[in-house]
Amino acid sequence: MQLIVNGLSCIRGGRPVLENVSFTLEQGKALVVTGPNGIGKSSLLRTLAGLVHANAGTVKLEGGDEELSVGQQAHYFGHADAIKPALTLKENLDFWQSFYGSPTRTAYEALLEVDLGDLIDMPAAYLSAGQRRRLSLSRLLVCHRPLWLLDEPTSALDAASERKLEILMAEHLEKGGLIIAATHAPLGLLNPDRLELGREQIADPFADDELFEQDQLQESQQ
């Protein structure tokens, strides 16, 4: 399996955000995307996930399901937690499992992986910020999707949870998965590929910052 991105560009709010981004990611590999705040890292991940329309370029997952888009074969782990506070932890994961299809773990098994098994019947509204983040992370575990798109994945995680994330990412890669992570923090990935976004790949250097709050609102409603 191989993800091939060629000449990817997108326009948001009537302004160009990304311009001519190209890379190839091989099966079992991770790509770490870096660059200054507002340079377009979040917009890149959201475009790959199909949440933002690409106005130029191509994205192809060779060896994937040809009847599905790349976004339909990806888990997107963004800034917002994408959970329903009124639902229990189990109900949240049951919803995502029914939405994604291709189940791989039960809700309880996924919650155990992120040390939330004892809270399975608790409404998500009572979770701390770190616990909400771990619940969101467990969405990646209940169903199989080969591509993980992670936007600042260590945000709100304590040191123990960061180590657990490292283990989960390593397991996903060992099984032939792919990971693209936009981050300012080290992730403990072994020999990842790297993509540093620069001014030549973004026409409006302030557009990504201005759209950040809109992205959070959209993620919270998904």
Rank of each mutant, 00 (worst) to 15 (best):
A80R: 15
G188C: 00
A170D: 07
G177Y: 01
L51E: 10
A159L: 09
A110R: 15
N6W: 06
S138I: 02
A181K: 05
T88P: 02
V33P: 02
S43R: 12
G71H: 08
T88D: 00
A80Y: 13
A56H: 08
G40H: 02
L147Q: 00
T154L: 00
A110S: 14
A160P: 05
A56C: 04
S102G: 11
M122Q: 12
D209V: 13
R139M: 05
E166G: 15
P123F: 04
M1C: 12
S42P: 10
W96L: 04
R133W: 01
L48Y: 02
A182I: 02
F77W: 12
G63A: 05
Q218L: 15
G7D: 15
V114M: 08
A82W: 05
Q97K: 15
I120N: 11
I11S: 15
E19P: 07
E213V: 14
E67N: 14
V17C: 06
I83L: 11
R132P: 04
A107V: 02
T24P: 10
T104L: 11
R145K: 11
K175L: 04
M1F: 13
S42F: 03
G198H: 03
Q73H: 10
A80Q: 13
Q72L: 05
N92T: 03
E19N: 03
I83N: 14
K175A: 13
R199E: 08
A207E: 09
L149G: 02
P85E: 06
C143A: 03
G28F: 03
Q216A: 09
E26W: 12
L197I: 01
L89M: 07
S155E: 09
S161Y: 09
R132Q: 04
P123L: 05
R145Y: 02
G130K: 07
A49Q: 07
F99C: 12
D208Q: 06
A207L: 05
G101Q: 01
R139L: 04
Q221V: 09
S102I: 11
Q218G: 08
C143Q: 03
Q218A: 15
R46A: 09
E91N: 12
